[in-house]
Design a protein around this nucleic acid. Structure first.
Lengths: 196, 196
DNA sequence: AGAAAATATCGAGATAGTCTCAAGTTTTCA
DNA sequence: TGAAAACTTGAGACTATCTCGATATTTTCT
């Protein structure tokens, strides 16, 4: 559906541009249908291009994912910023977390990559993940200040919960993800730990 | 360390028995060090055996895992039964969940297999996973009866939480797993949802 | 326009992993 | 001891990742 972001830098040769876009389109379709581990070789084939061409444009699988998801993740961060004005800080947080989980679920198996990317500075997805993490931190900080979540809940906790819930959702027929996320978020709440 | 369970059925030829055990030993070491996705070919090599021999003994990777973990999972189920007499039903549940998470962490990447196995009747690990699920259900039922957990929390929720927390723990440098499990379990508690 | 320069593409090849199976070897036991 | 049963072997058929020199296409410059 979505053909990805425009050219990376400078100007590309016309044929390169064409191939770049075709690869992105096919990759999006293949990943959506078969998961983020789908064969790059097959994607090149489907795009009518030699696999060397694919590697020329996207040296790593992560580079391809970044091209596919960069914008989307920035958008998610922006949504987080908007939810900073939600009536209830906790609800804003919860709403955003749900959106983030849905986002992670776009390609099966994406969670692993996203979890690694936030710690690995050399990952092409690092910046995007950091932006998401930061958005989460802000929502969390607000809810914390309002006394709605426990003071010891951190942004990495939230990030991990989102990805873990997405992961669980992928593994089970009735989407366990939603439930897990809800339980986790409830565990974040102040009320759950009066005596600790 | 642990060489796995004894022969499967009837009696094996002496050399077969030797190879079977050697494979189990090497697999345990390799999985422990490199994760449950480690190359079966390499395991056969390390065991000084042709790869056809490995496949002869263990038709699938899951079969190998079952041989490696079957007992251990039964033991986990037994631990669950014992914790049924814990002073506090919730603490019994929490203690067991922690043990289950540690158990899942024995080989990196095991969680995926365990989540699939519980739904897939054809998996060699299905029975073992069911036993674990059942143990969880009993602990949960007791805590529910005692009014310590929300009435809508199910055994699959618990199972998913345990595996998801183990998964998260594997992806992050500071072991996020423990924290996630705690938050999730707190989310299971009755007190967290008075008004819902 | 024409040719040189810059930029891309191609696809074979090196490496590695999964899984199968016909042919050969070892063990068992009557 | 020797034949039948039980195992092992390793090559072979696939699939995937990633690299690189040869080849082709596009752009640029005069």
């Amino acid at each position: 559906m979505n053909a990805g972001t425009p050219p990376p830098r400078r100007r590309m040769r016309a044929d390169a541009q064409r191939n770049y876009e075709r690869l992105l389109t096919e990759a999006a379709a293949a990943f959506a249908e078969h998961g983020a581990d789908f064969s790059l070789e097959a994607i090149a084939r489907r795009a009518g291009v030699a696999n060397g061409t694919l590697y020329g444009h996207f040296p790593t699988r992560r580079a391809l994912l970044e091209a596919l998801m960069g914008d989307r993740m920035q958008a998610l961060a922006a949504t987080g910023a908007e939810l900073l004005t939600a009536r209830s800080p906790f609800d804003g947080l919860a709403t955003w977390a749900r959106a983030a989980m849905v986002h992670t679920t776009i390609y099966r198996g994406l969670g692993v990559t996203l979890m690694q990317a936030v710690e690995d500075e050399t990952s092409e997805l690092h910046a995007a993940c950091k932006a998401v993490l930061t958005a989460g931190e802000e929502l969390l900080a607000r809810a914390r200040t309002a006394g709605e979540v426990r003071p010891d809940v951190t942004a990495p906790d939230l990030y991990a919960l989102i990805n873990a819930a997405a992961w669980a959702g992928e593994q089970s027929s009735p989407p366990q993800g939603e439930r897990l996320l809800t339980f986790g978020l409830d565990g974040f709440r102040t009320s759950a730990t009066d005596r600790e």
